[in-house]
Amino acid sequence: MGQFSQYVMNGIMNGSVYALIALGIVSIFKSTKVVNFAQGHVIMFGAYFYFTFSVMLPEATFMPDWVLKWEPEWLAAYKEGALMFSPKAAIAGWVNNLPRIILGIIGAVICNGILGLLIERVFMRPLLGQSSFAMILCTIGLIWVLEGSASLIWTADVDQVPPLGPNFPIRFTLFGEQVFFFSASVVNFGLALFLFGLLMLVLRFTRSGVAIRATAEDQSTAYAMGINVPAVFSSAWVIASTTGAFAGAILASRNGLSPTLGLFGLSVLAIVLMGGLDSFLGVLIAAMLVGIFESLTQWQLGGEIAEIVPYVLVLIVIIWRPNGLLGQAEIERI
């Protein structure tokens, strides 16, 4: 039972990262009706930007030393006598890194936002009004452009990036067995859920949120009501790419950096369809389900099968419910 709950909780933590990635796909779909197959690759750029600003830039000679390692006096005092791997040492190490983590996040969010804006303007805008097939293919073309560009831009060998939160093991007993986490995973989990919730609040209660929802409902009516629809499209891409920057930073610190990071996007796409393209709640549920199933299969059947869990699940779910768990059926009239 303890083992079981350990794996379920691991699954939920992974699921929250899926949910954060899915968030981007859903917000773009809701406002523009485009399903972004390249969201994983946008996130990969976020990861590389985070690496650039949190590792490459601080290491540059012209940067002051404290950016790479911040050692105020009070910290030294606090650290006195802390054991290796103790929470205290981990927190101190995290504070050392804080300037470059902040720099990394800010840099990644800004650069990825610009990237999202560029993609929308240059590639997606000219296709406005085309079939969804054309849109899908365009984002698939984007996959190759982004993957190729990333391996041209970041040729150097990549280093470890600093995790977003202090990283120490947490142990406690549950149902009579030892359960164990890394604190950084808990921070990632919290951050992902926070961003997910924040975006839902923004959509519900702000003016631009209402504009996005109106556009999602009916583009031409939104136009007629004076909503700046192209601006809505841009903002959807910016939302997706900036939340993607956070997801990228999390993935980079958890899984390491490589141009294949983008493939995450495809399993997340499966998750999004499983939840129902236009339902944030459905997608959140699906993300958690996949996270849990993946982690349980890993435990019982080994890592290899876990790779195809999202794909098997999505097949089962959409054959059973063609519009996903909570997606709305399109009314067909004749």
Binding site: F133, I136, A270, I305, I308, V312, L315, I318, I319, N323
Partner: peptide, 25 residues
Amino acid sequence: GLPSLRVKGLYLAVATLSANFIVLF
């Protein structure tokens, strides 16, 4: 092709993509 009787468009794209991964697996 069986899913194509129930799902369309994008859903079918992802269903076939999933099937591809599974076959290679």
